[in-house]
Design a protein around this nucleic acid. Sequence first.
DNA 1: GTGAAAGCGCTAACAA
DNA 2: TTGTTAGCGCTTTCAC
Lengths: 348, 348
Amino acid sequence: MEIMIDVDQVANLAQVSRATVSRAFTRPDLVNAKTRERVLEIANQLGYQPNQLASALRRGQSQSIGLIISDVLNPGNAMLVKGVQDAAAKRDYTVFMFNTDEDSDKERKALESLRSHMPQGLIIMPTAGAQENLSLVGNLPVIELDRASGIKGAHTVMVDNTGGSRIAVQHLTKLGHKRIGMVAGSLDISTAVERHAGYQQALAEAGIPYQANLVQIGNHREDGGRLAAQNLLSRPASERPTALFVGNNEMTIGAIFAARDLGLRIPEDLSIVGFDDSRWAKLLQPSITVVAQPAYELAYLACETLLDRLERGRTQKPIQIRLATNFIQRFSTAAPIEEEREKKKEKR
Amino acid sequence: MEIMIDVDQVANLAQVSRATVSRAFTRPDLVNAKTRERVLEIANQLGYQPNQLASALRRGQSQSIGLIISDVLNPGNAMLVKGVQDAAAKRDYTVFMFNTDEDSDKERKALESLRSHMPQGLIIMPTAGAQENLSLVGNLPVIELDRASGIKGAHTVMVDNTGGSRIAVQHLTKLGHKRIGMVAGSLDISTAVERHAGYQQALAEAGIPYQANLVQIGNHREDGGRLAAQNLLSRPASERPTALFVGNNEMTIGAIFAARDLGLRIPEDLSIVGFDDSRWAKLLQPSITVVAQPAYELAYLACETLLDRLERGRTQKPIQIRLATNFIQRFSTAAPIEEEREKKKEKR
DNA sequence: GTGAAAGCGCTAACAA
DNA sequence: TTGTTAGCGCTTTCAC
């Protein structure tokens, strides 16, 4: 990297002082138009760009934000990353990204590491331990993305999980399903709690009593979803749910495998609705009915909100944004087979 | 971020000079064991962490590397990101990630931005314009990941695209296919060229003449793959390929849609092999035969290689690593239907 | 509108 | 083994 040009080189060529060059970049209004143009012109020719490190050190903060997210491998999260990156790039902020893999320790390390890079703000998809961890970064402006840490007064940008789930389960009740199972996420994550609440609401609205044993908790991944669904689906036909609402996309895959293992046809023997859309949901035959989330927009908005807040100053009240989900009906749901017919089938 | 502790605070409490504190962290061997422990202990209590910015500025380089990749949304690329991140985190490097979206301009901007953060090295998945762009970062140690920019003497970490493709197409020739189409990527990307070469080799080995009109170029995305496959598959049955080798995963989706649109059954009417494995390839029915790439390992290795090079000093010869691909036979390929039977079918 | 000078937090000579 | 000192490249008072 020997080719770094510094302020002084520009200053010399432009016959001005360091300070003027600096101002030409950071406070253009404070410098004479002609001088400014000359400086910028020369800087451009030389390929000069202010050293972010020095600048950040001097100003006490860098033109950057942190992004802490659980796992880029989940395509939904990749969308979030992209949204944040794009919004940040548009306004010339650099993003420091860290993965937690849902591990609070990694989250803490990420925060420590981040801190020493002096970001101006942070967008975080909090782990269960975030309440504690976030004290590490003092009063750094933070926006919680996708889910809430539980810190009161926190700024959050999330989707309407409860409403989205409610609509999904309503769809199932309207089709005539009575035994609707749910594969839920771990209940120390706000999204899982909210999606579960939506499930309960829809059931209540349809006058179907809530049965705790129809709800199984999974670990948010394929294997967890598979296990949970297996548990639900391997019951005798009279107890087995005729429909399944699955709380996230990885677990939906697991549930599909579980259904296949048990020889259950979708949607004839089992209706499935997943939360979060994906490539394979569209591609599978039958394609899977889902509650889609505007992940990219959510992340983009979160980033813009953060940057606005940084540039326009603090807001008084906590920002709490909820974006609507989008119910996409495909072909993985159908009316349940009548009990009668089902019984006959079993007698055979 | 008022809570940043600095060297002086630690130094005061530990009754030593700033320099000693600094040394305790960066050259522990140069400081008396007892002093070091005391310093570290106090630093720990205070939650002190050296400011990366100041440190980097002073040393002329930061404990970080750049990662420039085309698009995190492609799950294959997400794997690469994860691999690099994990390898970097393990050795306490921070990763600056930028997306190019295959756009050389964005790549240039990313490099400019990166430069001013003084990374120690760079891992890049080069765009077509990388040869030119990379001059921006002077002699920064660079490793090209997944594909080659074409700069001679460059360090590269890639998979054996040619070999992988050859095996895939061999599989098809062995099944008895004679008219094997290829949906290839844009030929200004090294991977596309190599995969095309593998296709040609396998054909030659089977004594099947290469027909340029059986190769269609797509834009690396679903729509491009769909268009290219449509072109190939909408020909009359006697000219239509009985098998398709598709050069990347997004385009494979497009090809599958094209086949469905035309009512072609997989694998009865059309065998498909894709390059790059994915979630949906396993999940689809029939599941798709693919050439899988060890993306995570590739990226992890690239990062380790870079860091080794940084820490152990320059190597003389360019590093050029090729990892083997893994052919996964699933259920999207079968022997072609005999011409005779096919003809009869058409007469009906 | 511009320049001189101080200093962000750290590390690396150099001295002791 | 430790301390003193200078300075990385930049921005920002404070003068002029």
